[in-house]
Structures are given as structure tokens and as C-alpha cells.
């Protein structure tokens, strides 16, 4: 038995942590890529960093990497900085304090307090990678603690859904942006290669990719790996699979007949990826395929909300 509000807070708690980890890794990789460029020729492509995070680029771009770190990592005023994602996740955790384990809470609260501390210490902005590392490790540890200390019941499944829905949506959008920019083949080979590797690293996938395909990085393989790989936990297909599993589990926990709707959407999302072939996707229209995945994710969010969280009272009253 789970309160709807609690389910909602668990979902967002997990979603915001995933968002924080994703953003931390991506910012760190983009700053790294920038260091390999010659500033007098192509400079810092901060615009791309904002786009990759699905954020509207500001009218006035940050001037230096330190400013970018300030804006995207530590801006306490913004709702879209990594620090704000962690703060929002922690605020949601406070709402479900009685539902999650004390170990989970203490760890997340510790991560939040640590970031609050960093925000007061300017020296840290010059070390974006260690900052990213704090976030990435913090979130990964939280997931480990969650799996080890919380019952894998209904509440746990909402945490899974928040995480994998965010991952599927963000990864699909990142792939879409990447292949729109680097598909033409007109660009410099070395630059394109660096970007493909950067994409893999942004998804924490470079090592796993190399084990699978060797270090021969080719765009169609990158797409196949990040979109369709069944084993790699940050691929969209893997996420869709987990979404489907968790939604089925929740439908059982709640014995809701109307649960069918959310399950159906999740099933369709998974089927597209399960039966998808990378050569067909590329030959057809990769942009519309990836945009379709993102749209499906949004639809799934709506369906979960409608069935389990914000359902109309009239439909639930005893006859």
C-alpha cells in the first residue's frame, strides 16, 4: 500500500538524481573535449553543452569554463543546475522520509550538504571533474544503498521508473542531437571521431563499447550500442525493458485493471527498441525514430500519473 503522493515523490526523487548524474557526466565530458580544441579556431562550444542537456541556451553565454561550471553545476538560484537537481531530489526524499531507509536518506542528505558546502567555496569551480565525480559517485552509491536497504516492493519500483524514464528520454534526445550534427559526413574526420567518443563517454559507455566492438568507433555502432544494446544499462533499450518490468510489477501490487494503460505504453516503447535494427533506422529517418522514442517517454509519464497518482476521485469511490 502506497500513497499516491509518496509514489510521485519517489518517482521525482529518482528522476532528479538521474538527471544530476547525467548532467554532471556530460558537462565534465564537454569541458574535456573543449580542452583538445584550439581556442583561436573553434573555442568553447558552450552552446552545445546547454543543448545536450535540453536546456535553453542563455542569451549571454558563460565566458569561461569556470563560469559554465558556476551556471550549470552550482547556481543556487537556477532550478536547472546540477546542485538544484540534487536539492530537488533531496526535497522529495524528505517527503517520503518514512518510506525510504535511513541509510538512503542519510547518504542523500550528506551529498546535498556537501554540495551546499562546495557552493560556498569558490576554489571548487576550477575543478569541475572532481565536482562531477562527487555527484556521479554520490548518485551511484545512493542506488546501491537503495537496492541493498529498501524492500524491492512497490515504492522501489517507482524509484526504478523515475530513473529509467529519465535515462531513456535524456539519452534519446542526446542521440538525436548528436546524429543531426554529425551524420552528414562533411565534417573533419578527427573532429567527428572525437565527438563520437565524447558521446559514448557522456553516457558512461566508452569502456563497455570497446569490449563489445573493440576501439573501432563508428557512428552506426555508437547508435546501435546506446540505443539498442540489450545488456548495457545505460542504453535506451535496457531502460525500456526495466520500465516495462517495473510497471508490470506495480500493476500486480495494486491489482489495478486500469493499470493496463501505462503497461501498454511501456510495452510499445520496448517493442520498438526490441525489434529495431540500426541499419533500418539509419536508412529510414533516425531523427523521427529518436523523436518518437522521446515522445513515447513523455506519454508514459502521463499514463503513470493518470493511472496511479492523479486519478479522478470519482473513478475510485466505492459504488
Amino acid at each position: 500500500m502506497l500513497l499516491s503522493r509518496t509514489a510521485d515523490a519517489l518517482y521525482w526523487l529518482s528522476r532528479y538524481l538521474e538527471r544530476a548524474e547525467f548532467a554532471a557526466r556530460l558537462i565534465s565530458v564537454r569541458l574535456d573535449l573543449g580542452l583538445d580544441r584550439r581556442p583561436e579556431i573553434d573555442g568553447w562550444d558552450f552552446h552545445r553543452t546547454f543543448e545536450s542537456l535540453r536546456l535553453t541556451p542563455p542569451s549571454e553565454m558563460p565566458a569561461t569554463p569556470a563560469c559554465l561550471v558556476d551556471a550549470l553545476f552550482l547556481d543556487g538560484e537556477s532550478r536547472e543546475s546540477v546542485a538544484a537537481f540534487v536539492a530537488t531530489a533531496r526535497a522529495n526524499a524528505r517527503h517520503v522520509r518514512e518510506e525510504i531507509s535511513s541509510d538512503m536518506w542519510t547518504h542523500l542528505n550528506g551529498l546535498y550538504l556537501r554540495l551546499q558546502h562546495v557552493m560556498e567555496d569558490e576554489a571548487q569551480t576550477s575543478r569541475p571533474h572532481s565536482l562531477a565525480q562527487i555527484i556521479i559517485e554520490g548518485v551511484q552509491l545512493f542506488q546501491g544503498i537503495t537496492d541493498a536497504t529498501m524492500g524491492h516492493g512497490e515504492g522501489w519500483h517507482y524509484l526504478q521508473i523515475g530513473r529509467f524514464l529519465e535515462r531513456a528520454e535524456a539519452t534519446a534526445a542526446l542521440l538525436d542531437l548528436h546524429f543531426r550534427k554529425h551524420q552528414s559526413g562533411a565534417e573533419h574526420q578527427v573532429r567527428a571521431h572525437a565527438e563520437h567518443v565524447g558521446l559514448l563517454r557522456s553516457c558512461g559507455a566508452i569502456e563497455a563499447y570497446c569490449r563489445y566492438y573493440t576501439a573501432d568507433v563508428r557512428p552506426e555502432r555508437v547508435l546501435e550500442f546506446l540505443l539498442l544494446n540489450p545488456e548495457f544499462p545505460r542504453s535506451v533499450r535496457f531502460a525500456a525493458r526495466r520500465l516495462e518490468t517495473s510497471l508490470r510489477a506495480i500493476a500486480q501490487f495494486t491489482s489495478r485493471r486500469s493499470g493496463g494503460k501505462a503497461e501498454r505504453v511501456a510495452g510499445r516503447l520496448y517493442a520498438q527498441l526490441d525489434y529495431g535494427q540500426v541499419d533500418e533506422i539509419l536508412a529510414d529517418d533516425p531523427h523521427s525514430f529518436l523523436a518518437g522514442i522521446a515522445a513515447h517517454c513523455a506519454q508514459l509519464h502521463g499514463a503513470i500519473n493518470q493511472v496511479y497518482i492523479g486519478y479522478p476521485i470519482e473513478s475510485a469511490l466505492p459504488a
Binding site: M1, L2, L3, I250, T254
Partner: peptide, 18 residues
């Protein structure tokens, strides 16, 4: 906001209904 009263009975809103 998690609770509601219908016919003098108090319910809470859960994922499995009221």
C-alpha cells in the same frame, strides 16, 4: 491533501485506489 471524506468515511489516496 492525501485524505478525503465520502459518506462520512475517511479515505486516503493510494496507487491502488482509495
Amino acid at each position: 491533501r492525501d485524505l478525503l471524506v465520502h459518506d462520512n468515511i475517511v479515505y486516503m489516496r493510494t496507487t491502488a485506489g482509495l
